[in-house]
């Protein structure tokens, strides 16, 4: 198939599936908390809706950044789709993308001049530590498989069996990351409700649409990576079931736990990361 067409199709899939999964996640949380919750497509409808709303810019904003940051966000996640499902390229690039995602959270918060955004921005810096598990995971995987390419990791798994059985602690670490990135998570300090919507507070209209668009792709890609690098070559049905199951689990966790204090959130993630990294390396050596 034509590469461009493939990229386009994959982006659309990522967007739609990601939105549906986020909607589903919200539904699960609602059901756990004994509320009916919105329909599953609500998230998608929201994102589409924002594209047709009027866009305004705060007078205090730092202008080129305030606008371009959303475009950058969308751009990096399209790149993420290209590197991930389309090209099955290097994991390092994907984690570079996560780093930029952090930056976007940071700058979207600070560029508006809103105090809520500012708090979110500072917290984004705090939670840059949350990326540490990521690097630990890829380092551990690299030590075991000797490759960084997703296709290489898939090939490795088709020979040696899924990595989750060999590196359960790394999988746990990655799952912590998924919990961190999921909405309403106990670790999601950048979007805590006490700071309104965190970094998105001052982004309206089209800009918000871009942010929501990218967030759904981000969620899809995150789950996709997790399933791909830990469960080996699985079919479409496998992906669908896996993603739904992860959404249910994270939904349960997020619905039942309160949000942590920023320091505690960061240090808890780091502690998990350190314990799991050391454990995995010991397991590999043994």
């Amino acid at each position: 198939m034509n590469l461009m067409a493939q990229i386009l199709i994959n982006v659309i899939i990522a967007f739609l599936a990601g939105s549906l999964l986020l909607g589903f996640h919200r539904k699960v949380m609602a059901r756990v908390q004994l509320r009916p919750g919105p329909p599953i497509i609500q998230y998608l409808l929201h994102s589409l809706k924002f594209f047709f709303k009027e866009t305004t810019f705060p007078k205090t904003a730092s202008i080129p950044f305030y606008i371009s940051i959303t475009v950058i966000l969308a751009g990096i996640w399209v790149t993420g789709v290209i590197v991930g499902p389309v090209a099955k390229g290097s994991l390092m690039i994907l984690f570079g993308i996560y780093a930029i995602h952090k930056i976007v959270e940071h700058n979207a918060g600070s560029s508006s001049g809103s105090p809520y955004g500012k708090v979110s921005c500072v917290r984004a810096v705090f939670s840059a530590a949350g990326e540490l598990p990521l690097f630990a995971v890829i380092a551990v995987i690299f030590i075991l498989t000797g490759t960084m390419d997703i296709s290489g990791i898939i090939a490795y798994q088709s020979i040696h069996g899924p990595l989750i059985f060999q590196l359960p602690l790394a999988a746990l670490m990655f799952f912590t990351l998924i919990v961190t990135k999921s909405p309403y998570s106990p670790f999601a300090i950048t979007k805590g409700k006490e700071i309104i919507s965190g970094f998105e507070t001052e982004h309206f209209g089209m800009l918000r649409g871009y942010i929501m668009f990218s967030e759904s792709i981000a969620w899809y890609i995150l789950l996709w990576i997790f399933l791909t690098i830990f469960f080996g070559p699985i079919s479409v049905v496998g992906y669908v079931i896996g993603m739904i199951v992860i959404c249910i689990i994270t939904g349960f966790i997020n619905a039942t736990t309160p949000m942590l204090n920023p320091n505690h959130s960061v240090m808890a993630q780091i502690s998990i990361a350190v314990i799991c990294t050391v454990g995995s390396i010991i397991m590999i050596i043994i």
């Binding site: 950044f65 952090k102 930056i103 940071h106 700058n107 600070s110 921005c121 840059a128 990326e131």
Partner: peptide, 13 residues
């Protein structure tokens, strides 16, 4: 904001 952005960006990269 743009200046402190680069601080964070550089450290992550």
């Amino acid at each position: 904001s743009p200046f402190i952005l680069i601080i964070h960006l550089s450290s992550l990269f």
